[in-house]
Amino acid sequence: MILQHAPEGTIAIRQDDHAAFAAFLLEHWSNNNFTKDPQRDQIILAARHHDVGWIAFDAMPRLDPVTCLPADMTSVEPEDALTIWRRATALHLEDDPFVALLITHHAYSIHEIAHKRQPAWKAFFTEFAQLRAELRDALGLDHPAIERAYSYLRMADWFSLQFCMRHDLGAERPEHYAGYQFRRVADTLQFKPYPFDLRSLSYSLPFFRMADGGYRDEKQLRAAFDRPEMLNVTIEPMGRL
């Protein structure tokens, strides 16, 4: 679960909905000759399914006793992370090991930043490093080949995640990632240079409005996830700063 805290209140976005937004960005990505990339469809599928392991967790969100809001992705315990990422990688191990490899590499990479030196995460890193090596060798790939394809997944994940998490993204000055400046103005996500195939894109992002003061128990919390509202996101070029 992703939480976005804004002055007007907190909203929750399910991980799988964030992943769908990331995949949408890649479907329209036209820079770097990506539309002709022979691995394009696999990269987009990996982006779409990279958080599929969260579906069951987000369907039955747990209550954070401190915030009285759903426990979000930043508070995931190593045992749960193992479960979540095993589910995501297992989805494509048989039908498309390259997609499984991208998701495995993603799992390792994002947790490496936050948890690499923590003993509790040792089992996670050992398992995913081993799985990544097995898939890499079975596919006859080297690390640069993985990184080249993965860079798209990582980038789309980052743009989507930042939009989902931060209502004030780039408010003071634009954010920078992978050579792109980006910022959020209300529900519009702006880029410079502009990497997409259409001059303006529209996307409906499901979200759930959280009650002020949070929830007493998980039953009450889960009732808040009955039906999503839709955030109508526009993506367009960034004008003069």
Binding site: R14, A20, V52
Partner: peptide, 12 residues
Amino acid sequence: LALTGTTFLHRP
């Protein structure tokens, strides 16, 4: 369905 965030799991 894709527009409303449905996840498709292709199992052939």
